[in-house]
């Protein structure tokens, strides 16, 4: 099962890459040569190329590959769970693969809900990048240290954090697209900035309560395992900072009327905090969550 989970991860890496490329091609209307004719007329060689915009079928390939990648990652994580006999969230490889799974799942749900395929051009590359990062970490199943031996809370706490970060990743993709698009609608093929602003907002609405839940479950677990619900450990502090940034985003957007570019930059900063919490703290700063390192 362990080997199966690793093999499926590699398959998902490839399919996510294909999906990301297809989405990018579709979103930016890359022209492609579909035919080439050559003829010899005496001493003259004539070549004609015919090109057209990447069609809906390319987008369909992207959609299929994206969903296939989500499926492969789901089975990979399930196989990992089965092989390890505990939730697959206990080292950097497992976190990272689960994060990529969460992003691709969140993207599939948002694409189904809002029918904006071009969003994949900004979200799927994030998932692909995360999967590439996973290849840098050891992929072997290791025994669970005593502090992590709480399967239910482990699954809920880390699961909530991963899903919230995944939703924020979708918000980041939509926001990056929004900033690129601008109020003047630079790219006809991409959705309007206001639509992207709404998608980002809804993604934050999904991620924000999940992050609150994850923090509370972490506090509950910390209270059991370490005897305190909060200890300003770098990982928990960084997650709280992320929560505060998105809390600020929701308040300035809803109460101060910040929309468009200004609120978009808050989302970008929030996503940077997600990445810092996820990788920066684990790889460069020691703390009580250091066992979750490489």
């Amino acid at each position: 099962m362990e080997q199966l989970s690793i093999a499926l991860y590699w398959a998902a890496l490839v399919t996510t890459g294909i999906s990301a490329l297809c989405y990018i091609g579709y979103a930016f209307g890359v022209r492609t040569a579909i035919g080439r004719m050559a003829t010899n007329a005496g001493n003259v060689t004539m070549t004609a190329a015919v090109s057209q915009r990447m069609s809906e079928s390319v987008a369909a390939v992207g959609v299929f590959a994206g969903r296939l990648a989500t499926f492969l990652l789901t089975v990979s994580l399930a196989a990992r769970w089965s092989a390890a006999g505990r939730p697959p969230y206990t080292n950097m490889w497992e976190f990272t693969v689960a994060f990529a799974w969460g992003i691709s799942l969140a993207y599939v749900l948002f694409e189904r809900r809002y029918r904006q395929r071009t969003l994949g051009a900004f979200v799927l590359p994030v998932a692909f990048g995360i999967l590439l990062v996973a290849s840098l970490f050891p992929d072997r199943v290791s025994p669970l240290i005593p502090a992590l031996q709480n399967d239910n809370v482990l699954a809920l706490h880390v699961g909530a954090m991963i899903l919230s970060y995944s939703a924020f990743s979708v918000a980041f993709g939509a926001t990056a697209m929004q900033l690129l698009q601008g109020a003047e609608r630079r790219f006809a093929r991409l959705p309007r900035a206001s639509t992207l602003d709404q998608i980002a907002y809804r993604a934050v609405l999904a991620g924000f309560p999940l992050l609150a839940l994850g923090l509370l479950l972490g506090a509950y677990w910390g209270n059991s395992a370490w005897g305190r619900y909060w200890g300003w450990d770098p990982k928990e502090t960084s997650a709280l900072v992320t929560w505060l940034i998105f809390a600020a985003y929701l308040h300035v957007r809803n109460l101060a009327g910040w929309k468009g570019k200004r609120s978009a930059w808050v989302v970008i900063v929030g996503f940077m905090a997600v990445i810092f919490t996820f990788y920066g703290v684990n790889l460069w700063i020691s703390g009580l969550h250091s066992y979750a390192g490489v």
Partner: peptide, 16 residues
């Protein structure tokens, strides 16, 4: 409130 939250987030970052 935004400035205060931002300040606390920055302090949290320093503390991390």
């Amino acid at each position: 409130a935004f400035a205060l939250t931002g300040g606390l987030a920055l302090a949290g970052l320093f503390g991390t």
